[in-house]
Simulated assay, not measured.
Amino acid sequence: MAPRKQQEIFDATLRLVAEKGYDGLTVEGVAERSGVNKTTIYRWWPSKAALLGAALVEADVLGFDPPDTGSLRGDLVALVEGMIRLLTEEPSADIAVAALGAAVRHPELDARRFFADRFAREREIFDRAVARGELAASADPMLVVDLLAGAVWLRVVFRGLPAPDGFADAAVSALLDGV
């Protein structure tokens, strides 16, 4: 399948899940919105869960490149700022909350691939920090990411509060320097 057409299918999938939730997402709806036949979609993805799982990882709208500011602190601040943008700016905010929220209620939607892919990219931040001598090799990168991402999700999604200016710096400082 042509990469552009694949992105159109992923975009249609993510926008539909944002508009209608996982229960309202259908392969027929994706086919109609993306201008392809539903048999084409089923040829590549056997179910709506497989389609949404692929879209979460491969769609340009949720694309992610790990920051490289030259320091662990700078990279983590940039990472948190990226998480804030993901959860507060359109169209990614509605998509991320709807799709990842659906993964909690629908085990057939395996979001582990999304998180594994994202963490594999985030891991580069920690590998560079270890190489620069900023971080002990025994540090747990996943714990660091979980603590920072948890702070963003809790503030922005669950509490419905804005992340004020300086939130990323404060979260990273609390983690690296302690409270």
Rank of each mutant, 00 (worst) to 15 (best):
R123L: 14
V145W: 00
R113V: 12
A96L: 04
P162I: 06
L143P: 00
V104P: 09
P141K: 02
I125E: 02
A102F: 04
R123M: 09
A98F: 07
V145H: 01
R113P: 10
R105Q: 13
L143E: 15
A137M: 01
V130D: 01
F114I: 04
E122T: 06
F158Y: 15
D94A: 15
M142T: 11
L135G: 00
R155K: 12
A136E: 15
S138F: 01
F119E: 08
G160P: 06
R113N: 09
P162E: 15
E134G: 08
A151G: 14
R121I: 04
A131I: 06
S138I: 04
F114V: 09
R118M: 07
G160L: 00
V144T: 14
F158I: 09
P91W: 03
S92A: 13
A137E: 14
R118E: 04
D94Y: 03
A96C: 06
E124T: 11
L154H: 12
P107W: 03
A137F: 01
V157Y: 10
A93E: 01
L154K: 10
A99L: 07
A149H: 11
E124Q: 13
D140A: 06
A131N: 08
I95K: 04
L143W: 12
L148Y: 00
D127A: 15
L161V: 02
A98K: 09
D117G: 12
L109F: 07
D117L: 00
V130I: 15
R121C: 06
R118T: 06
L109T: 06
L154T: 11
V97N: 10
E108H: 07
E134Q: 11
A149N: 13
D127V: 15
F126R: 07
F119N: 10
V156T: 13
L161I: 06
A103V: 04
W153G: 07
R118C: 01
A149R: 15
F115S: 07
L161G: 07
A111R: 04
A151H: 02
H106E: 15
D127P: 00
L148C: 08
V144G: 05
A129H: 00
A116P: 01
D140K: 06
S138M: 05
V130E: 04
A96D: 05
V144E: 03
V152G: 08
V156H: 12
